[in-house]
């Protein structure tokens, strides 16, 4: 697959997005710090990272699901030129579902358990596309068939708990794409599924992007999923994009020690079994506060005093579309503690 970079307005623009949670009596915690990325039509952009890296919070912010007085959102989120931050609730509700749609990790908790799957889809169709009665039913059947659910007429009347995990996830995808959204956000859509089912769902998402030209924001912790699906990858660590590049560039020439560390620590199906894994030491809880420097420093083999001199700046590699936030990237001599 080739990387498609559209010169036209991107479907989604996120610029310097910062999200801070404030709590009475506690110091505010920043979950996301100056995250920027764009997604064009028919493009798949990945946000990769481990627990607590801010990937899901970013998705919720884009969907306008973070509006709370305990959350401060800074920066810019624009959908096809429309600023989403500060948009009236009503407008946001209209956009959500119709233009922006989201798929969650656990379809069982995201679907309404007491309403048949078919009705949940027809409700979306009537709300956003004005389809009623038979027309809505027919369209719902067509959608369920589209996502590969066999015997869709019968499935319409079934409740979420009557379906298997894979089928539920498909039903949720059907619901998400029912109104032809231009942006689809998938938050760990396959993490709860078995591998053979995961392969089916990933294939389905790929197909949707190719045929409908949907922009897809893929949120995952699985670098394998990213390698197979995403055109462009943003690696997040503790709320910051530490490295961003098109996938071939990122996997072929990773720069940030966190990215390289991750790649070297995952056992690979096609790797040499004799070579021991090279783990990153410590855990994601060992952090340095942002204002003080690189959050990854406590776990990094290349850590130097410079790493703790404030927020690491974005460095762009010359000639390629590849940027990172490492103060002391490989190439300069590594110092192993």
């Amino acid at each position: 697959m080739t990387v498609r970079r559209e010169p036209a307005t991107p479907v989604l623009t996120v610029e310097d997005l910062s999200i801070t949670f404030t709590q009475r009596g506690a110091a505010p915690t920043r979950a996301v710090d100056r995250v920027s990325f764009e997604i064009g039509a028919g493009e798949v952009v990945g946000l990769v990272g481990e627990s607590g890296c801010g990937k899901s919070v970013t998705a919720l912010a884009v969907m306008g699901l973070l509006a709370d007085r305990n959350v401060e959102i800074g920066g810019r989120i624009a959908y096809a030129g429309t600023e989403l931050l500060g948009l009236p609730r009503k407008r946001m509700r209209d956009l959500r579902g119709a233009d922006l749609a989201m798929i969650f990790q656990d379809p069982l908790s995201a679907l309404n358990p007491v309403v048949p799957v078919g009705r949940q889809i027809t409700e979306m169709l009537s709300r956003h596309r004005g389809l009623r009665g038979r027309d809505a039913d027919a369209e719902a059947v067509q959608l369920l068939g589209r996502v590969g659910i066999p015997d869709p007429e019968r499935r319409l009347k079934e409740y979420p708990h009557q379906m298997s995990g894979g089928m539920r996830q498909r039903a949720m995808i059907a619901m998400a794409v029912s109104c032809g959204p231009r942006l689809l956000i998938a938050d760990e859509p396959t993490t709860a599924l078995d591998v053979t089912i995961q392969a089916q769902v990933l294939e389905l998402l790929k197909d949707l992007v190719e045929t409908e030209g949907t922009a897809l924001l893929m949120i995952t912790h699985d670098l394998g999923v990213v390698a197979g699906l995403c055109d462009r990858v943003n690696v997040l660590y503790a709320g910051r994009v530490v490295e961003a590049a098109p996938r071939h560039e990122l996997f072929g020439n990773p720069v940030h020690p966190y990215t390289t560390g991750l790649l070297r620590s995952i056992p690979r199906m096609d790797g040499d079994r004799g070579v021991p894994l090279n783990p990153i030491r410590g855990s994601v809880n060992d952090l340095v506060a942002w204002a003080d420097g690189c959050a990854f420093a406590p776990r990094c083999d290349r850590y130097e005093l410079e790493c703790l001199a404030g927020t690491p700046a974005v460095t762009e590699l010359p000639g390629v579309d590849h940027e990172h936030r490492c103060v002391n990237p490989p190439g300069t001599p590594a110092v192993v503690r």
Binding site: G224, G228, F251, G252
Partner: peptide, 23 residues
């Protein structure tokens, strides 16, 4: 064939045997 490998080159060349249906 269903297991994703963190390497886009390998991913692009892989032949997938996609199973249909549920367990």
């Amino acid at each position: 064939s269903a297991i994703p490998v963190p390497d886009p080159e390998v991913e692009a060349q892989r032949e997938r045997i996609l199973l249909t249906g549920d367990l």
